[in-house]
Amino acid sequence: MHPALSVIFFTVTSGAGYGLLLLLGSARLSGIAPEISSNQTLFAGIVGLVLVTLGLLSSTLHLANPKNAWRSFARFKTSWLSREAVFAILFYPICLVWLAVVWAVGNSTLSLVLGLFVAVMSIVILVCTAMIYASLKTIRQWNNPLTTVNFILLGLLLGSLILLLMLHQQNIVVSRLIVISVFLISLSALTKIIYFVWIGQPAGPTINTALGFTRATVRILDVGHSSDTFLNKEFGYEVARARLIWLRCLCVLLAFVVPAFLVSGVIGEVGFIHLIAAAFSAYVGVFVERWLFFAEARHVVNLYHGRQQT
């Protein structure tokens, strides 16, 4: 698949925003940061909303006809993209009411309940975003349960590192959040590496089932067009094997290894420099991960263009 930067930026940045708001919304109850003050919640909440908004704005750059974007709420019943759009819009009033309550009333039972509601909405939106890709049977690299798991975990991972940076700057004890971050890093590294191994096994339709000649070899003679078509440009993207391996290593290094070392205090006592480097490294690493997510995905239409299997 053609890796469109607008969509990559959208899924990574919005994912980080929802991950941040998920952790923040449940921070007092889960004990991530029980003593967080209302002003600190407000600040972190606004940062989360800005991330979410930047991502959503970027997603509209991908549309060829953005003036009809408002129509995307129409097919909530069947389309994951529509569900994502509906929940993303519903999220704003809920999150703003929560932040308003935090600002006006301070830490109360009401803000606690609204915060939980925000956390639940965040995870619902992360699932919807992932399901846009995971529901496509035409792309086996996406059509598996690990897609959703990775979207949620990587959103949470980025959110936790950004929250860690902000809380540390405001002199809040972050030892628990550090444990959670390290746990998220380990878990998401594990699921991502399993994903890389998993998609290495060819499966699904072949050129034979695509054309219905299942008892003989099938080879392409001519694709029937002389220069690139929409189908080639959208689905024909190929990454060289050596570059792929290099990028996978870079992704694992930047998204998981570097942040794990910086946050866990292996390299000196955890300070501002460590945390900002960890968040930046993880963001770049997840960006590479999302680029690979698209670039490694092979649509079955490539079978008609001569690929033997996907």
């Binding site: 698949m1 991908h62 549309l63 060829a64 006809n65 953005p66 003036k67 009809n68 974007a69 129509r71 995307s72 389309s79 993209l81 846009i132 496509l136 049977k137 035409t138 792309i139 339709p205 695509a210 929409f230 189908l231 959208e234 689905f235 649509h299 079955v300 239409v301 008609y304």
Partner: peptide, 13 residues
């Protein structure tokens, strides 16, 4: 709105 998702879902191009 030109989001391309239908073309992604279609196996036949």
């Amino acid at each position: 709105m030109g989001c391309n998702l239908c073309s992604w879902a279609c196996p036949y191009g």
